[in-house]
Amino acid sequence: MNIGTWLRGARLADGTPADVHIEAGRITDVVRDPPATTTGDLDGYVLLPSFVEPHAHLDKALTAARVPNPAGDLRGAIEAMAAAAGSFSTADIAARADAALRVMLAHGTTAVRTHVDVGTSTGMRAVAALADVRERWAGTVDVQVVALVGRPWTGRAAPTCARRCARGRTSPAAARTWTRIRTARSASAWTSPVPRGRRSTCTPTRRSTRPC
């Protein structure tokens, strides 16, 4: 193979030496046990498949300096983020997600599953932002957006269908269905809070064929 570029001298995960051929930006061949005379551009590097990040929160990425957590624990982080989330604009969320994806890609990650808050403080802004980010990164990083729906389901701040549910005009299942419909156009999957003692569930929408 005379065209393209050979990167020589890498090692596979099992320690086997390998040369890599790249053509038009894609790996077209990996040759194990190259001749001993091979000199390498990848000497000292390990050649691995690209990484997958199965659980990210790109809508909250790069906010440590802006959202301090004095308690230093999970509960403190949740409360601090809930208080700050209302100040995040769609453009801000998208810019931080883009920056986080650039770092992930630089370290070899090409698929990310991100949970994205949907609730009274953020509305649909985070889902809309991440849907746009997903489209921009298509073909480079595969981004799956999971709408993480929070409380309240009832009361003045709840979605319209949930308020109707509280007044007995529809069921809790209908309220959840309403939220799924609202998020399905942008999110790949949907999750909701689950009462203590029950197992969490994830229901894919038509956009997603992956298991949850």
Rank of each mutant, 00 (worst) to 15 (best):
L7E: 08
P152V: 01
W6T: 09
L130D: 10
A162R: 06
T179D: 04
P193C: 01
M1L: 13
V141A: 07
C202W: 00
L47M: 04
V116Y: 03
V145H: 04
E23Q: 12
G123S: 14
D73C: 03
S121T: 14
R167I: 01
D73L: 03
A157Q: 11
P54Y: 01
A99E: 13
R102H: 13
R169T: 08
R156Q: 08
A71Y: 01
G150Y: 08
P204L: 04
H21D: 02
T170D: 11
A162K: 03
R156N: 00
R198N: 02
G86V: 12
G155A: 02
R32G: 10
R11P: 09
D19I: 12
C202N: 04
Y45W: 15
P70W: 04
W178T: 14
T63A: 06
R134G: 07
G123D: 10
G123M: 09
T160G: 12
R134F: 00
V67T: 13
A64D: 14
G155R: 07
R206L: 09
L101C: 05
R163D: 07
N2G: 12
D43K: 04
T110H: 03
A36L: 14
D92I: 01
D98R: 15
L48S: 06
A129W: 01
A138S: 08
F51W: 15
I93G: 09
R176T: 02
F51Y: 11
L47K: 04
S192H: 08
L62E: 10
T183Y: 00
C165H: 03
S188E: 07
P204F: 06
R32L: 10
A187H: 05
A158S: 11
M81F: 14
G168A: 02
L101G: 07
A97K: 08
A36K: 11
R196M: 08
S89G: 15
L130E: 04
V127W: 03
A175Y: 00
T120S: 08
P195I: 01
T179K: 05
V46P: 03
T110G: 11
D29R: 15
R185W: 11
F51C: 01
L130P: 06
T90R: 14
V127L: 09
V20P: 09
T177D: 04
D73Y: 14
V103R: 14
P211V: 13
E135Q: 14
A61E: 03
G72S: 10
G123Q: 12
A80V: 12
A162P: 00
C165Q: 10
A99H: 09
R164I: 04
R32E: 15
V112E: 02
M124Q: 13
R199G: 10
G9F: 05
V141Q: 05
D19H: 03
P195T: 07
P49I: 06
V20S: 10
T114D: 05
A80N: 00
R66Y: 10
Q144K: 06
G76I: 14
M124P: 00
G108A: 05
P159F: 06
T114I: 05
S50H: 10
T205K: 00
T160L: 09
R182H: 08
S89F: 10
P54A: 04
P49A: 01
T39K: 13
R169M: 07
S208L: 07
A18F: 01
D59I: 02
D19F: 14
R125C: 07
R66P: 01
P172Q: 07
L130K: 10
V133Q: 00
T183N: 10
R66E: 15
A82S: 13
T37I: 12
R151S: 07
C202E: 08
H57Q: 13
K60N: 03
